[in-house]
Design a binder for these strands. Structure first.
Length: 510
DNA sequence: TTCCGACAGTGGGGTCGCAAT
DNA sequence: ATTGCGACCCCACTATCGGAA
């Protein structure tokens, strides 16, 4: 199988708009690879065309792809060859590794045709832009193997990976898929949540009664125990066991042999209130924990216990099992209610304890592994400020040709504006068109660079989740998850919110 | 025929580890 | 010592397709 065939398929998929057409094209390609009889090649192809490398990461990013050699004129690279080259690139380590890696990347691109270079560059930079990733690939595997889509999806969630499922489906068929079961030690796609605007919205969407839980501002962990062996995975299923000895110890203290659980790891202050997220992130990111900032762990779901799979049980039953296993001090706070006032009170109390918000869960919903299920909703308070647009950046991909990412400034009472971050979120296509025109008028100097500086005249209402410390911005603060609500043509920059307002919010802890 | 769930795309700030400068 | 890069923690939001209602 030639790389050229895969690159051509990717280009065709990108140019089709119908999802069914993309699925069909992917299925044809998968069947062609499967005809070679090599399961590894099926897995590699499925992985690439869902935007991932089987090696996960190989230390090559955007910067390493900035300058590439001229392309080859004939297509000689095979899928197997490129896969092997990726492994070699990823295995380079130590002093001189950057240079060595760059050399291997250059060799690869020298051997690739123009079309292949485009594909490889997109794949390695994580911007495949073919309108098809894991979701479409899952359906394509089903179509190629003649298996119901739901079965492929479920196997992928239980395997925590699509490529192995692709290989199994196309070489072993339906019986091979049935082999994928929940197993302690093999990570599972975590269930994710949708957003609700408040507890009333959450109660209504969940059908009247909800399980409310404290939403801790830490890092999600999936904990597996098989006998005395504990492993801990992140939301993206990376193994972080060695970084989190506290989590391992807390898990070994539980009266069980085998389990799979969902939990949050978070750094707490001595008084039990949460540290800022940055403290947890620093500790979580550290490979060798040392003696700094101990992490606490709080369990909130149980998927497997001593031979029994629980994930298809309703939430209330899974939580009964969790409560019987984990002491209350190691679980997140919880309230089951249908009463909006009681729910609001729980949210208020949770926020007063310094936490991020609450989760609202359907008592009857199963654990939808790997999905952003409608059975889980998050509720977090939203702040808004009227800020001034200081500059704007040209967009990429589908935003090419529009002025997209705006730089946000708060008014400095002493004069001028203090930048607090950027945002590209919340803009409709109509807003993008409007702001491209508006900011072209406000441009202070050339508009052909990446960043276009503006006269500070346009006020914009910005929603955000909180204020965090920053070394990047001059005020020492940056907005967390900033997004545009609307442009305010009824306000002048002299009426914009001040940096003092932002600082007060920061010092209040949020 | 309309509605809505799921998915892909477009990027945000912060932190770490590590190689290069 | 500092800087740049890659990887990954937290993530919000809109457009689109196609099946559900």
């Amino acid at each position: 199988m030639l790389l050229a065939e895969v690159a051509a398929a990717s280009a065709e998929i990108a140019s089709a708009s119908a999802r069914l057409a993309k699925t069909r094209r992917l299925a044809i390609l998968l069947n062609r690879v499967a005809a070679d009889g090599d399961a590894r090649l099926v897995a590699v192809t499925a992985s690439w065309l869902s935007g991932e490398l089987p090696q996960r990461q190989i230390g090559v990013g955007w910067a390493a792809l900035r300058t590439l050699p001229p392309p080859a004129t004939s297509a000689t690279l095979t899928v197997a060859d490129v896969d092997a080259r990726f492994s070699r690139i990823g295995a380079v380590a130590g002093k001189g590794s950057r240079t060595a890696r760059a050399g291997l990347v250059r060799d690869l691109f020298e051997t690739a045709t123009d079309a292949e270079q485009v594909f490889l560059r997109r794949l390695l930079s994580g911007e495949l832009r073919q309108g098809a990733l894991a979701g479409v690939m899952s359906d394509a595997i089903a179509e190629a193997a003649g298996i119901p889509a739901a079965e492929v999806r479920r196997a992928a969630m239980l395997a925590g990976a699509l490529p192995t499922v692709a290989a199994a489906a196309l070489t072993g068929g339906r019986p091979a898929l049935a082999e994928f079961r929940l197993r302690a030690g093999r990570p599972v796609g975590p269930m994710l949540a949708q957003t609700a605007s408040g507890v009333d919205d959450a109660l209504q969407r969940l059908g009247g009664t909800a399980i409310f839980e404290a939403k801790l501002d830490g890092a999600r962990v999936q904990i597996h125990r098989a006998g005395s062996a504990v492993s801990v995975y992140t939301r993206s299923l990376d193994d972080v066991t060695s970084r989190l000895p506290e989590v391992v110890a807390a898990t070994l203290a539980l009266p069980a042999t085998d389990l799979i659980a969902d939990a949050e790891a978070i750094a707490l202050r001595p008084d039990g209130r949460p540290q800022r997220f940055q403290v947890t992130a620093a500790r979580f990111g550290r490979k060798h924990p040392g003696d700094l900032e101990p992490l606490s762990v709080f369990f909130f779901d149980l998927l497997h216990l001593d031979g029994s799979d629980l994930l298809d049980l309703p939430t209330r039953d899974r939580l009964d099992a969790l409560d019987a296993l984990v002491p209350a001090a190691r679980r997140v706070d919880r309230l089951v209610t249908a009463d909006p006032a009681a729910a609001q009170n729980f949210l208020d109390r949770t926020l007063a304890s310094g936490h991020e918000g609450v989760m609202a869960k359907s008592p009857s919903a199963p654990y939808e592994a790997g999905r952003r299920g409608s059975g889980w909703l998050k509720v977090k308070p939203v702040h808004t400020l009227d800020l001034v647009v200081l500059a704007v950046e040209w967009g990429s991909g589908r935003r090419t040709g529009t002025l997209s990412n705006i730089h946000l400034g708060a008014r400095d009472p002493a004069g001028g504006f203090v930048m607090l971050g950027k945002t590209f979120k919340g803009m409709t296509d109509a807003m993008l068109a409007w702001q491209t025109e508006r900011f072209t008028e406000l441009a202070e100097g050339p508009t052909d660079g990446y960043v276009v500086r503006l006269r500070p005249e346009q006020v914009v209402e910005i929603a955000f989740d909180g204020v965090q410390g920053s070394t990047r911005y001059p005020g020492g603060m940056a907005l967390r998850f900033a997004r545009v609500v609307r442009y305010r043509d009824d306000k002048s920059p002299t009426e914009a919110d001040t940096v003092d307002t932002v600082r007060a919010l920061y010092e209040r802890g949020g």
